[in-house]
Write a protein that binds this DNA or RNA. Structure first.
Length: 447
DNA sequence: GTTGAGCGTT
């Protein structure tokens, strides 16, 4: 028996009625059609005064009791996603607002949609994805002869905001969970906007604070890295990639010495592992928070991540360290490469940071083995499909029964099959489980 | 007419 359910974006907002299905469930797609990006529902339980999450399984929201009753339901959004204009108080929500602002400038790219049902047509895709915003292109790849779908397609939004929203969740399309990612062929496009510059010909007198202070006049400096012992170069990371780009190729005078600025090259480990053979870094495939820690565009102050997405073409490795032609010898070049390599945030614990290296920000280098540490830093959390950790959204199953698989089905991260794997006991492992089902491509952080 | 990790006839 179908009924209309009262849903609002916030408590106190004017509710909107959304229809349930004949079996009494509410399709997540129905909800998100009216509340784009919504990933769940909650309501105020007046017995306890607390918010109660609504069970979500296989794209269906289940009524809290025998039916939906007269509760006012609140749409739940992935963490950091609900960046609306009506959030006037930008004090505590400054993080998501900031990231939003940063993303506004970004351009859309084609997105690959994986896992489509064989029967899904381009019309189906268009109908589904237009809830996130205006679509510029929709494709379903088919066998040329038979016209049979290959099970994947491409979409392109006109607004980057739509793309971010769309990528922040999985998608139930015609009964299957589908993933939306940046296509392999497009990775690297973003990397042209590296936030980090290489500063060559540094003198020993230049401290990290000196560099930070000097470069701050061009834009917000997120990080300064000076290898120790002294090697006559440094890395400066800006919050805005455009700032970094604008400085590339220039010579600047700092403390009476002329330094040369150029784009920081990707690490060798990134180049080889992600380009040549991803099996060389099996850890990546199991790392949680690939998404949120990915492209390092979120102003993440940690070294390890600012390079995560700098996988430019294979021909832009050592040779393009941009050391200012012939200013530095081979040893120095190798040293720079080594330093870049050593900044891998994903490496073994002991190798995370070069000993003695200085940083101007006081933050400790976070090794991404503890999941809870990640999102707090991560301004780019809008990339993170609010991993199943997101109980704070209140959208996690609270009712009993088969709800033990709740975490796995949250936002659809998990198995395609109805039967869920054993429920992990900790949040951390649950993330590994859920995210680990997406193999490879960890380096780019775009998927 | 089957299938289920991937990566786009232009």
């Amino acid at each position: 028996m179908s009924q209309y359910i009262h849903v609002a974006e916030n408590e106190g907002d004017e509710p909107m009625e959304v229809p349930s299905e004949d079996d009494g469930t509410l399709l997540l797609t129905t909800l998100s059609a009216q509340f784009p990006g919504a990933c769940g529902l909650k309501y105020r339980n007046h017995d306890t005064g607390t918010l109660r999450g609504i069970r979500l399984s296989d794209g269906r929201l289940y009524p809290p009791d025998t039916d939906w009753g007269r509760h006012l339901y609140i749409a739940v959004f992935p963490k950091g996603e609900k960046v609306k204009e009506n959030s006037t108080h930008s004090s505590d929500s400054s993080v998501s607002v900031k990231s939003h602002k940063r993303f506004e400038r970004q351009k859309c790219s084609d997105l690959i949609v994986l896992g489509l049902p064989w029967k899904s047509t381009e019309d189906d895709l268009r109908k589904y994805f237009q809830q996130f915003g205006e679509l510029l292109m929709v494709q379903v790849k088919k066998e040329p002869k038979t016209g049979q779908s290959k099970g994947f397609g491409f979409v392109r939004f006109s607004e980057y905001d739509s793309q971010v929203k769309c990528m922040a969740q999985r998608h139930m399309i015609d009964g299957r969970w589908c993933d939306v990612r940046i296509p392999n062929s497009k990775e690297g496009a973003q990397q042209m906007m590296n936030r980090k510059v290489f500063v060559g010909r540094c003198t020993e007198e230049m401290t990290a604070d000196d560099l930070r202070h000097y470069f701050s006049k061009f834009g917000e400096v997120v990080d300064v890295f000076i290898p120790k012992p002294f090697r006559a170069f440094a890395f400066v990371s800006f919050a805005d990639p455009e700032t970094a780009q604008s400085l590339c190729g220039e010579d600047h005078i700092i403390k009476g010495a002329s330094v040369h600025i150029s784009g920081a090259a990707p690490k060798a480990s990134e180049n080889f592992s992600s380009r040549y053979d991803r099996r060389m870094v099996p850890n990546h495939a199991h790392m949680p928070y690939q998404g949120s820690w990915g492209p390092g565009r979120g102003g993440n102050p940690n070294h390890g991540n600012s390079n995560m997405a700098t996988g430019m073409g294979n021909n832009m490795g050592i040779g393009n360290l941009g050391l200012g032609a012939m200013q530095l010898n081979h040893a120095m070049l190798a040293a720079a490469q080594a330093v870049l390599s050593s900044q891998t945030g994903w490496g073994p614990l002991g190798l995370t940071h070069q000993s003695g290296a200085t940083t101007t920000n006081g933050d400790p280098i976070v090794v991404a083995t503890t999941s809870a540490a990640a999102p707090q830093h991560s301004i780019s959390s809008s990339y993170a499909p609010a991993p199943p950790l997101g109980t704070s959204n209140g959208a996690i199953v609270t009712t009993g029964g088969a709800g033990t698989g709740a975490n796995n089905s949250f936002l659809g991260w998990g198995s395609q099959t109805a039967e869920m794997p054993p429920v992990p006991h900790t949040v951390a492992t649950s993330q590994v489980h859920s995210w680990g089902t997406v193999p490879g491509k960890a380096g780019s952080g775009w998927n």
